[in-house]
């Protein structure tokens, strides 16, 4: 390989290497961690967070606008006792929130729930009955989850403060 002459001072290079190692050692001795200890503490979500969607069955007029606007074909209409109601497939949903925006009677609402787990794909499909309930999974831990708020700190990067 042809080498192009480059002006580099080996002693300066060595100094830069030592500087890098020094920085590493500094972080090793005084670690600043920005990990959110997730299952034990979780972040407070901002208002307007687009989490899982909930239906208010009694408010819904069955106009089918939400199913029409859905870009991912996640929302479908079903007829239950003569009334058209939406059902959702969370395997397809992209959480864009178009259905919530387009609903003329505000029958759909975005909840703050986003950390859900399912064991199979059939569970991802919510029929109108399940869709019109507050989605809640039983907690996996005995301790209550600490709610924290992220704050930018000049020295430490991100710090988490308990939310009160």
């Amino acid at each position: 390989m042809k080498e192009y002459p480059k002006k580099e001072n080996p002693f300066k290079l060595l100094g830069q290497h030592l500087e890098a190692i020094g920085t590493g050692l500094k972080y090793l001795v005084k670690p600043t961690r920005i990990t959110l200890m997730y299952p034990e503490e979780s972040m407070v979500l901002p208002t307007g967070y687009r989490g899982m969607i909930r239906l208010y069955k009694d408010v819904c007029i069955g106009c089918t606008l939400c199913a029409m606007v859905c870009p991912a074909d996640a929302m479908k209409m079903v007829t239950e006792e003569g009334k058209k109601l939406p059902m959702i497939n969370y395997g397809r949903c992209v959480f864009c929130g178009f259905c919530v925006d387009i609903c003329p009677v505000d029958a759909l609402k975005e909840t703050g729930v986003h950390d859900a787990a399912f064991t199979n794909r059939r569970e991802l499909i919510f029929d109108p009955d399940k869709f019109s309930q507050d989605f809640d999974q039983p907690p996996t831990m005995d301790k209550p989850v600490r709610k924290v708020r992220a704050k930018i700190d000049e020295k430490k990067g991100i710090v988490y403060e308990p939310d009160d």
Binding site: G24, Y27, L28, P31, T32, R33, I34, T35, G157
Partner: peptide, 10 residues
């Protein structure tokens, strides 16, 4: 552990 400490992890 060392790599985690320097990369701000646990």
């Amino acid at each position: 552990k060392i790599a985690a400490k320097i990369q701000m992890r646990f």
